[in-house]
Simulated scan of single mutants.
Amino acid sequence: MHFTNSIPGSDPSDRGTVAPTLQVFSIKISEIKGGLRWPLSVYGVVAARDAVDHNRNLLFARDRSVYQTIKEDDPYLRLTGPSRAIVFGDPVDFEIQLKLRGSTAARDRALITSTERYSTGIGTICFENCFCTTELKLEAIERSVQATILSVCVKGGPWPSKYGGRVVCYAPSRSGEINGEVVLSDSCSGGMMPTGLSGHLRLSRNVVSVEMQGSLQVSLQAYSSSGGFSQRKVVSFKAKSCLISQASVTFGGAKVEITVAWSRLVSEKEDITTKGWVHGLGDSDKV
């Protein structure tokens, strides 16, 4: 959110840029080989490096104490990033380093370690070795800005389903096509919504790229007893280059308030460090 507080109409060259970015939707283990069996206890790192600062921009990061159980009927990693938009002016490097947790640390084993340079614009990157195939689904977005979902707050009543629900968002192209959705929060069917203080939902992800002339759609979805959705509500935000948008909607017996911060993108780290602006664009390589 380096340029969220910019003055509307200010000189774009002095307040960030509108540029191509990559939207990462999901990462899944699509196939296992070499005698492995489901479920898998997985930990490790998946990250992107772009030309802004070449630091790791983490998409998935867990150590062995908080491993994720990957099942055949739900093979997706629970993503927590990126922490800022992935700029796609130059090729982007994606790194994956996943391990399988054993009964002791000495019994842990490597699942996959690989790096792929992305420059094509196709919608899927595949990482493959003798143990598994992992697919990263993404989309290239032209002339985009960054939307940071600051909060989704449930007020005046409980979440409308005791079976939980999820919050997702997507940014349709100018043609109206939706290539994928970003999961912000998911209780998984049958679980309670992850709610913190004052009704704020705990969001696992909150950074989304949006086409400058487009919109961001935030979808609230309540699970039913069968695992489907009993209620849905969509809130639309028109893309901006700066400032904050806020909208409220009635969902069941509750009022849900959504707050989004908008910002132009940083093209190079040096552009802001020389002006004394905020440091720390990417995550540390010490992870």
Results as ranks from 00 to 15, higher is better:
27 I>W: 03
82 P>E: 04
11 D>N: 14
282 G>C: 10
68 Q>M: 06
71 K>V: 10
208 V>S: 01
273 T>L: 15
265 L>P: 07
72 E>F: 04
165 G>S: 10
230 S>Q: 10
110 A>H: 05
3 F>Y: 13
193 M>A: 07
76 Y>S: 11
77 L>V: 05
108 D>F: 09
61 A>S: 15
4 T>W: 04
66 V>C: 09
208 V>I: 14
97 Q>V: 01
54 H>I: 07
164 G>Y: 05
169 C>M: 03
183 V>N: 08
127 F>L: 02
67 Y>G: 06
257 E>T: 15
41 S>V: 04
2 H>W: 15
151 S>L: 06
20 P>W: 13
39 P>M: 14
197 L>S: 07
89 G>Q: 10
90 D>M: 01
281 L>D: 06
209 S>L: 04
201 L>C: 05
13 S>L: 14
167 V>E: 06
116 E>G: 02
276 G>Q: 13
137 K>N: 12
109 R>M: 03
191 G>F: 01
78 R>N: 10
33 K>Y: 12
109 R>H: 00
131 F>Y: 11
45 V>K: 14
133 T>M: 10
53 D>Y: 08
17 T>H: 12
126 C>R: 11
120 T>H: 06
59 L>D: 07
59 L>W: 09
34 G>H: 09
259 T>H: 01
261 A>E: 08
2 H>I: 09
42 V>W: 10
221 Q>G: 00
8 P>N: 12
122 I>H: 12
201 L>M: 02
224 S>M: 05
188 C>D: 12
44 G>K: 08
1 M>W: 12
129 N>F: 09
66 V>H: 14
4 T>S: 15
94 F>W: 02
166 R>C: 11
225 S>K: 14
46 V>T: 14
94 F>K: 00
152 V>S: 02
264 R>H: 00
82 P>H: 04
51 A>K: 14
162 K>V: 05
253 G>S: 15
52 V>P: 13
282 G>Y: 09
41 S>E: 10
157 G>T: 03
112 I>C: 01
184 L>R: 02
93 D>C: 00
256 V>M: 02
72 E>R: 15
99 K>D: 09
242 C>W: 08
63 D>W: 12
237 F>D: 12
1 M>Y: 08
46 V>H: 04
286 K>I: 08
91 P>M: 00
7 I>P: 03
115 T>E: 12
187 S>R: 09
121 G>Q: 08
224 S>V: 00
232 R>W: 06
34 G>Q: 04
15 R>I: 03
59 L>N: 01
